[in-house]
Design a binder for these strands. Sequence first.
DNA 1: CACACCAAGTAAATCGATTTACAATCGTCT
DNA 2: AGACGATTGTAAATCGATTTACTTGGTGTG
Lengths: 336, 336
Amino acid sequence: MKPPPRTTVTLADVAAAAGVSKAAVSGVLNGKPRVSATTAQRIKDAAKNLGYHANPTARQLRSGRTDAVGFVIPELHRPYFGELATHLANQLEQQGRHLVIQRSGGSREQELAAAQFAQLRRYDAVIMSVLGVDPPDLESLGFTIPLVLLGEKSMPGAHPQVLMDNETGAFEAVKHLLTRGAQHIVMLGGSHSPDRNDMTRRRTQGYRTAHTTLGQPLIEELIIELGGVGAESGYTATTQLIADGHTFDAIFAVTDVVAMGALRALADAGLRVPHDVQVIGFDDIADCNYTVPRLTSVNPHKEHIATAVLDLIAVPNNDNRVITVPTTLNVRESTL
Amino acid sequence: MKPPPRTTVTLADVAAAAGVSKAAVSGVLNGKPRVSATTAQRIKDAAKNLGYHANPTARQLRSGRTDAVGFVIPELHRPYFGELATHLANQLEQQGRHLVIQRSGGSREQELAAAQFAQLRRYDAVIMSVLGVDPPDLESLGFTIPLVLLGEKSMPGAHPQVLMDNETGAFEAVKHLLTRGAQHIVMLGGSHSPDRNDMTRRRTQGYRTAHTTLGQPLIEELIIELGGVGAESGYTATTQLIADGHTFDAIFAVTDVVAMGALRALADAGLRVPHDVQVIGFDDIADCNYTVPRLTSVNPHKEHIATAVLDLIAVPNNDNRVITVPTTLNVRESTL
DNA sequence: CACACCAAGTAAATCGATTTACAATCGTCT
DNA sequence: AGACGATTGTAAATCGATTTACTTGGTGTG
């Protein structure tokens, strides 16, 4: 029934209202009552009446604790990260903590900027999904709070990481296509340069290994580099591929979203999936069950990844621990 | 060349290293040098050598400023929010500020919890996308920082809001279907109860108005309430609708994601879109261009919404201002 | 009776910055 | 010469909590 406070209510206000010291109030409100039950009740009542909420900034400055974990991702609208974030948030919530998400932008410079961004120190721990940043970059920053790297990219260094098994996942996907009769498999969003060590490169490596392992000739022109990881890139590249008259009977897309672009391009060209062209994506996002046809995809087990990340955060001082979460293939209608 | 600091470097450390007072260091590092150029340089060098970064928590406690704006959304994996967040982040970045995202959960209780969650006070301003919370709920919290409500729901109250024009958007969509010959339009994810005032209800209202305005009989059984706003809900409901032998020649889905579920169900049933059944979604997410067939959708102009929100934040004390952003219909292949 | 001990509470230090109010030095103008 | 105003800087207060180190007064024990 009290009107909302015009100005912020501080601990001192509550203490004054209850006729006790700030220490008493702080103790009671944090569940460590060093006072009598009646006094505790009086304090609680006063706090409620005044509409008191502890200032989290002051609390953190003194005690060091936030109940927030930061999650830095390249882009806010990529379904993979949205789904992963949901798992992280779910699990954190069970611990009474909160997930807070920020965008880096995805380029090396932007990731560095994000990492330097002092705001990150406001979290108990930070999970960073890095694409372009390199180990020396990060180490020079001297992070003082727990930092877990979420990789699609192996980065030996001073920070623990969780990786998905990009190479094996890609291997299994391409192997699946090859055993289903595909002979000319496009790697949509692959990488030709062997020196880089990012997600794109790892998945391309799986693509190569599958070919050599199964004794299938590898056609270098079918490895298509893309400008981005959006559906648009997949659509444009596939359309171009068809226009150029390339022969292919399967597409392994670096990402489900890219695969969706490819599916759309194939439909426009009147090619039937999987009859004329088989398609596999990567990430196993929710949309895979609703595309026409439903999209076969490599499942990175986001929930496992989330669990692994939180485990690494929970245990202090486990630098350079690397957990690799295995993938499985989720076969749907877009492959035979 | 210096090794990263083992422990946190404070302002006092820099001051000691440079042989000056903390005030001098603070001044120089914040661009308000009250010292000579040579001293300033000495301070900057010391800061760089020690790897000093200001503690944002302490800074905020004293100065009140963060450079972060909070954005509270119901779910982290909904494309609409991901895209809107991207626009907000882009625009904020141009102002040198950052967007920070948190999840509420979507229910009234969870939204209240999120709003009470003291962490929100760590931002300069908060943008909240509310679904279930009511005005009295929020006012009782006595927010002390700028709060903009992002609505799909009109909530007259003490806080400024940005709404999309749900009713007109739905009206135009249904009108479009009716003028293209549809006679039995399913409202997928509608609401029967007229008392609630949420997004679902507003869009259903547009559906009704379109029918009466165009003199088309409205079939109450075609308004289908859904348990959720995911693709699964749309899929299940549409499948059920077909199994039950209902006649319909169009679907207006409350959300693009729901529409995608419907598209999938129609494909499973062997119904052709738009020939047998026309489909329209709402939100105009990026996926609309890549579904088969491409999905006609109501475009809420997320970029405009973002601009409006940031305008409201920029101007202090504009309580109870309400900006309604108009929608347009984006016609694609799923309608005739 | 004296000693230890517990319960109930408080005053003051602290976290790391920003900001205010003031001091010292020097050159310049009248 | 004395006053004035820059210039260059510093000491201390402050933000709002948590936490440590101490008071009290009463109570059980040997």
